[in-house]
């Protein structure tokens, strides 16, 4: 019967394709030790290609791969609020050949997820590499010039105070929640509109559809130069180079507003110290490279190297802050 003959071939071929793909996913094995790395390294980015975390990881991976003399594959595993990709990286063989591109959204912010299939601290903290400041921003038409202006308006009439939040589980949300917490205004009494990303939120603020919001400082630069938004303050230790006229939160009298968008690397629990040290050393060299710094600057990020145990306590402190103010 020609029906069966025709059907058999494509099915067999598809099956072969599936098997080939599953085979690719298997780990080829390999030792770790003094010769680390002796084969290509996979870095799993649990988000889509082209996002902030992805571009920072790619910029670093490029330089790190030259430093290590080994290929570093940046593998995007987007979707599922970062959970499946993070879980995959953290349950890999702890040999230093599969690492996680870590950040708040793959660590501290997971405090907000019910029934998380793994424990946040159950990983080897390798290093925080960079951080990017967050900015508080108001529409130009609001007339607000400082964080205190915003605070006064929010306190005077919370029910008509309009602001832009993101998904509720991002570092930008943490920065906004910290703000309301710090000025003592109950968020539930205000008028909050959620946007899927910083770009959408800033566009809505620029068009004066909502009055106030926050997000990565880098995303505010062009609207600020166009004069459609007013950047009130940025987080971080120093002023943000592209917005040099904007005070830091500490300068604006609010040092407690300290959320930043950081990027780093973690691995499965039980990663050998030799691997953690190799990465610390490599990052130190790579982050000093002006070409790398320039690429990071394009993402609004600056080097902020913190390794091993110190990195771990940083993340756990952030996680505490997340569950305290957002939970």
């Amino acid at each position: 019967m020609s029906y069966r003959r025709h059907f058999g071939v494509p099915l067999a071929a598809a099956l072969a394709g599936i098997l080939a793909l599953s085979a690719c996913a298997e780990d080829a094995g390999g030792g770790s030790g003094a010769d680390y790395p002796s084969k290509p390294i996979d870095i799993i980015v649990p988000a889509s290609a082209g996002g902030g975390a992805d571009l920072i990881t790619r910029a670093l991976a490029d330089a790190l791969s030259k430093h290590f003399g080994q290929t570093i594959n940046v593998v995007n595993k987007p979707g599922g609020n970062n959970i499946p990709g993070t879980q995959e990286a953290l349950s890999a063989k702890p040999d230093g050949y599969t690492l996680l591109a870590d950040g708040s959204s793959t660590s501290s912010l997971m405090k907000l997820v019910d029934n998380l299939p793994f424990k946040i601290e159950d990983r080897t903290f390798v290093a925080k590499a960079t951080e990017a400041p967050m900015a508080y921003v108001a529409s130009a038409k609001s007339g607000w010039a400082t964080l205190d202006d915003v605070a006064a308006a929010a306190k005077a009439d919370p029910s008509s105070f309009e602001w832009a939040a993101l998904g509720g589980t991002t570092i930008a949300d943490l920065s906004l929640v910290q703000f309301f917490d710090s000025i003592g205004v109950e968020r539930s009494k205000t008028r909050m509109t959620r946007f899927p990303g910083t770009a959408d939120a800033v566009t809505a603020i620029a068009g004066n559809h909502v009055s106030f919001g926050g997000g990565g400082a880098n995303a505010m630069v062009s609207q600020a130069s166009a004069g459609t938004v007013k950047v009130l303050a940025v987080t971080g230790a120093q002023r943000f180079a592209a917005l040099s006229g904007v005070p830091t939160t500490a300068e604006a009298g609010h040092p407690e507003l300290n959320a930043t968008f950081w990027a780093g690397f973690s691995g499965p629990a039980g990663l050998p110290d030799s691997v953690v040290n190799a990465w610390g050393e490599a990052l130190k060299v790579v982050l000093a490279d002006p070409a790398v710094r320039q690429k990071l600057a394009a993402q609004g990020a600056v080097p902020a190297l913190v390794t091993g145990p110190e990195f771990k306590s940083f993340v756990l402190a952030e996680a505490d802050s997340v569950s305290k103010v957002m939970g």
Partner: peptide
Amino acid sequence: RVMGPVILVICVIGAYAIRGQM
């Protein structure tokens, strides 16, 4: 009988390539 399997393989690989998930 040649194209059918080729298309299927392209489809399977393409679907896998979206997010690297079976």
